[in-house]
Amino acid sequence: MRFKTSVRNISTFIKLTSCLTPISKTCWLRLSEDEVRFVIHRGDHGTQVWATVSIGTLFDEYRITSANSNIINLEVPLSLLHRALRSCSAAVDAVLRLTKRASDGVPILCLTITTSISTLVTQEIPVRVLSAASVEGLREPEIGEADANICLPPLTQVRAIAERMMKLSSAGNDGKLILAANWKGEFLMRLEGGEMVKVESRWRDLQNPVTEDSDQQQDLSDEEASRFKQVRVDGREWVRLLKVGVLARKCVACFVEGRALVVYVWLTEEGDRDETVLTYYMASYSA
């Protein structure tokens, strides 16, 4: 099992890790001959994140071999990886390879950084190699066609309000928030169930992106288009997701009524050669 690559695009790599760190401590990194995949998957109810990027988006001079059709699965501690990458943000050259720590044989991702004054810095990130069998059952959720799609307003603004709502949430509503959107460009976020207070924030004039070859919007009656399709999510997880707001270029939320919320976060401008999109899946709780 061998893996060695030069890190071509450190800033995108850092953006990716900083979008993952608020959600979980570790992620599953799947390296193959033609793509790199970052996955956070924690049972049925936590937020899941799936991001697949082409090799060229992050790496250069990429070499990978393994007995498992040249696929390597690793469990990576996100904060260590993120910190290591940040330290090389000013690097001239950075090389990432999978090796074993000399002292105890623990597998590590070793990041070797060459700085402008030709100093070599080595960062070691202990990882766990996952067997093909252990990740076999993990599949990206299939949601099907959404009941409403909407371009979210600036996430920093949504987050500020969501945080206030969470402060107001009492034991009565176990920290859940209602999120909803309709086909009239409206998005709302609501705290209910509290004994003392109900709060609802509403955004208007947002865009409803439509997926190609879909006729979602056409045959809707005006009444149906105005109707909000809602999900009920864990408020704290939602606030964590909104932390990516600083980096997001564009953010689209797809509502599957009463079942799930899927949020696509673009880290790159649309049409960028190295398009990088993260997909967040949140399950809806029943009231």
């Binding site: 307003p153 309000i161 207070v197 109900k198 709060v199 924030s201 509403r202 955004w203 208007r204």
Partner: peptide
């Protein structure tokens, strides 16, 4: 009735319903 406070911040409308 509840005390209803409606705040409008650059088009974002927040309604607070206080018991």
């Amino acid at each position: 009735s509840p005390l209803v406070i409606t705040l409008d911040d650059a088009g974002v409308i927040t309604t607070c319903t206080l018991s």
